[in-house]
Design a protein around this nucleic acid. Sequence first.
DNA 1: TTTGTATTGTACCGATCAGTACAACTGGCG
DNA 2: CGCCAGTTGTACTGATCGGTACAATACAAA
Lengths: 188, 188
Amino acid sequence: MKTVYERADVVPLLAEIFRELGYEGTTLSRITERTGIGKGSLYHFFPGGKEEMAAAVLADVDGWFERAIYEPLRHDDPRAAIDAMWANVMDYFRSGSRVCLVGAFALDETRQRFSPVIRDYFVRWIEALRQALVRAGCAEDDALAAAEEAVSGIQGALVLSRALDDKEMFRRTLDRLADRLAATKRGG
Amino acid sequence: MKTVYERADVVPLLAEIFRELGYEGTTLSRITERTGIGKGSLYHFFPGGKEEMAAAVLADVDGWFERAIYEPLRHDDPRAAIDAMWANVMDYFRSGSRVCLVGAFALDETRQRFSPVIRDYFVRWIEALRQALVRAGCAEDDALAAAEEAVSGIQGALVLSRALDDKEMFRRTLDRLADRLAATKRGG
DNA sequence: TTTGTATTGTACCGATCAGTACAACTGGCG
DNA sequence: CGCCAGTTGTACTGATCGGTACAATACAAA
């Protein structure tokens, strides 16, 4: 039996590996080892090599957040969209046992390779959340700070819950952040 | 002219490199390139190679936090120690342009190599801060949550301010975290 | 100055890195 | 069936990886 992939099948597999090993830690041999996909296929789908693989993974992640989180925050009912955001984030990061690829890339020199994408991912997240807060009746000044606090808080919870190996801590922190955001909407 | 080092001189130089490049991204040749220290010296000071270098760096970082932050939180005047913590954190991380080595190691598979050290660093930070809050008159239940929130918030601010390349965002977030902690002390 | 120890530069090792070349295979379509 | 574009395994390259060996150097003590 022989498996035949197409590019779209490969990207999520790569994403998981980049997430766990980081950009530098991800080697072609470890990709092959974990997925069974050989160099032939990898360079067929991603002629630009490792860098193109990482770029494709980043674009895929970005697209998911755009559709599942940012877009609803901009246009759907703001309270419902914010509730959905918290639920989606909890699921997506598997209660903290899955890392944010973009956040991880931001920390080391990998950032230099992808800095526009990384920056954009967070800028759009914060801005979409800010808009939702304003639409929910939050004061303009408070909205930006609250949005920054929420997005920053999620990243911190990921780092800390992973360091402590404690999923419960992630859930607890996200609940606290959600409560605080809800208080902001009410003008707290 | 020829520079002669001793081990204690080398550790801080290595720390900066591990911080910027991550564990996997740090190679012996890049260490030599950035510091001028050759393999001969490196393996003389750290016979265990790269892993021992990283362990030494982690121990050094841990020691600094222990002396400069945790110990005052446990024994000095709690309000003064908390104020000093915020000031020290701001300086140490250079307004967000310097990354937390321990947090960075926690995100990728490097965690597996050093998981006890990584966990301990954060556990002791949170516990020391919790004690200070209790001593400052905060309720036991609120103290743990507030301490977790502060430490987690710092890590998030590091990720986000680096992703956005925005030192001001780091300062703003730390100020907000500090205010919130102060409110907790007053029983907010 | 001589001696002994600490430190360092250099040459080298096998393993692994990212990337290339290309022949062999696969599956859909006629 | 035969064709063919898309996909894949394998063998290879030169560079770099972490690590070792050891002779040369620097320096403090006598």
